[in-house]
Amino acid sequence: MQNINHSLMIKYGLANTPNDFEVERWHELVIKFINEGLSAEEAGGRAAQQTFTSFNSSVYESASDTIAVLLSKLGNK
């Protein structure tokens, strides 16, 4: 999952690359929030706030992936 880990670090301004457990937790919450009616981007942001302690603590000069791309990296399991 290393590619997704790095992508999440960039997208959500994390101080460190999240571990696989954090990525799986984020993924579960994204699916939950989408099922509750949030857009994918809103669901991803809310899940990131609840999962990553360093949410928005850094700014990277790199383009971030959309939630759809991030979910596809996870195989949308």
Rank of each mutant, 00 (worst) to 15 (best):
M1E: 06
Q2A: 03
I4A: 13
I4M: 04
I4C: 01
I4H: 04
N5F: 07
N5M: 02
N5C: 10
S7N: 14
S7H: 06
S7A: 15
S7R: 15
M9N: 03
M9L: 13
M9I: 05
I10S: 11
I10Y: 10
I10D: 09
K11H: 09
G13Q: 07
G13T: 07
G13H: 06
G13C: 06
L14G: 13
L14Y: 13
A15T: 12
N16G: 04
N16V: 13
P18N: 07
P18Y: 02
N19W: 15
N19P: 12
D20W: 09
F21P: 05
E22V: 11
E22K: 15
V23R: 08
V23F: 05
E24S: 15
E24C: 06
R25Q: 09
R25Y: 07
W26T: 03
W26R: 12
V30G: 02
V30D: 09
V30W: 09
I31G: 03
I31H: 15
I31C: 10
K32Q: 13
K32F: 03
F33D: 00
F33T: 00
F33P: 01
N35A: 09
E36T: 01
G37Y: 07
A40Q: 09
E41R: 00
E41L: 03
E42Y: 04
E42W: 02
A43P: 02
G44C: 08
G45E: 00
G45V: 00
Q50C: 02
Q50P: 00
Q50M: 12
T51F: 00
T51P: 00
F52M: 12
F52P: 07
F52V: 04
T53M: 14
T53P: 06
T53R: 13
T53S: 15
S54G: 11
S54F: 05
S54Q: 08
S54Y: 07
S54C: 11
N56V: 08
S57A: 10
S57L: 09
S57F: 10
S58K: 10
Y60G: 00
Y60V: 03
E61M: 04
E61S: 09
S62P: 05
S62W: 08
A63Y: 15
S64L: 03
D65H: 15
D65Y: 15
T66L: 02
T66R: 00
I67H: 01
A68C: 08
A68P: 01
A68N: 12
A68T: 08
V69E: 14
V69C: 05
L70C: 11
L71Q: 02
S72M: 11
K73N: 08
L74T: 08
G75C: 10
G75N: 12
N76T: 10
N76W: 11
N76I: 07
